[in-house]
């Protein structure tokens, strides 16, 4: 498998599918997701380069979260193939860490911060293996990395939104993965949390991990990320931020919803 490419099996008598680079940490092909009659994601192909930091950007309702959830099997997809480090999703799960949207869970749930981080180890703990000191120490180290070590014994409902987001990131770190998928990690967090999270994400990249995040703040795209996927139900464009984050592509993605004055303020690539 060193040729750099893997050819996937034919699908239902159709023509040979497009090839996927075997070294890509995350690739989706022909992904379509629908909750009703209208698809929210339509025929999206995307291949993330290794060790990249990818922003998935698009307007509200553009299917950014749905693309991520369908790729992870959280919501069903109508069509689409997912390849993670050259493997199908089912055998690659141990290499994936996931941070859901903070608002997707009930923070009144009776559990402590440290217990949430330990949930990131449930795969290795299985049904009955006891949580021992090394597990707890690893969980504490993950909490320290996001600046939340002092909150380990707090009930999660007593945290601010930014602190909750950091706990979710600590849980993903505890998964010890190679690919990190985050759904709106900066939504509704304070400036200190945003700084803490981006520092962790950049350190992950330095450790040669791949980070893919649904992102909504155009002002920080160029600072935080090096690769970009622009979608609005369909894929509009993808590629390095340096060449893809252009006024033309943003207009195509957002249509009339993005004022030209706003675009002028962004650090855009020329083109």
């Amino acid at each position: 498998m060193q040729q750099g490419e893997v050819r996937l099996a034919t699908d239902g008598g159709r023509a040979m599918s497009p090839t996927v680079p075997v070294d890509s940490p995350f690739a989706v092909q022909e992904m379509t997701v629908s909750y009703g009659e209208k698809p929210v994601v339509f025929n999206v192909d995307f291949t993330a380069p290794p060790e990249s930091m990818v922003a998935i950007v698009g307007p509200n309702g553009a299917g950014k979260s749905s693309l991520l959830k369908a790729a992870l099997g959280i919501v069903p997809s109508i069509s689409g193939r997912v390849t993670v480090f050259g493997e199908p999703l089912a055998t690659a799960r141990r290499r994936i860490a996931y941070v859901p949207q903070r608002a997707s869970v009930d923070w009144d749930f009776p559990t402590r911060v440290i217990d949430v981080v330990l949930m990131g180890m449930y795969r290795e703990l299985g049904l009955l293996k006891l949580v021992r000191r090394p597990h707890r120490e690893r969980a504490m180290a993950c909490l320290a990395r996001v600046g939340m070590a002092d909150f380990a014994d707090r009930q999660i409902g007593q945290l601010s939104g930014g602190q909750q987001q950091r706990v979710f990131l600590a849980r993903a770190l505890a998964q010890g993965a190679d690919l990190y998928l985050l759904d709106e990690p900066f939504a509704g967090v304070d400036a200190a949390t945003e700084k803490a999270i981006i520092d962790v994400l950049k350190s992950l990249k330095a450790e040669r991990k791949t980070v893919i995040a649904v992102h909504h703040d155009l002002a920080t795209v160029a600072d935080y990320f090096d690769h970009l996927l622009l979608i609005n139900v369909r894929k509009i464009a993808d590629g390095p931020v340096a060449t893809t984050f252009t006024a033309q592509n943003l207009q195509a993605t957002y249509g009339g919803r993005l004022a030209t004055a706003h675009i002028d303020q962004l650090q855009l690539a020329s083109g």
């Binding site: 992870l72 099997g73 799960r93 997707s104 949930m119 449930y122 299985g126 849980r171």
Partner: peptide, 22 residues
């Protein structure tokens, strides 16, 4: 007792539980 972890995690965060393959 046997299914404590899957019950707890899928009750708290069903999406995350699904990504673990539960």
């Amino acid at each position: 007792a046997l299914f404590w972890r899957p019950l707890k995690l899928s009750t708290f965060d069903e999406g995350f539980a699904a990504t673990l393959g539960m």
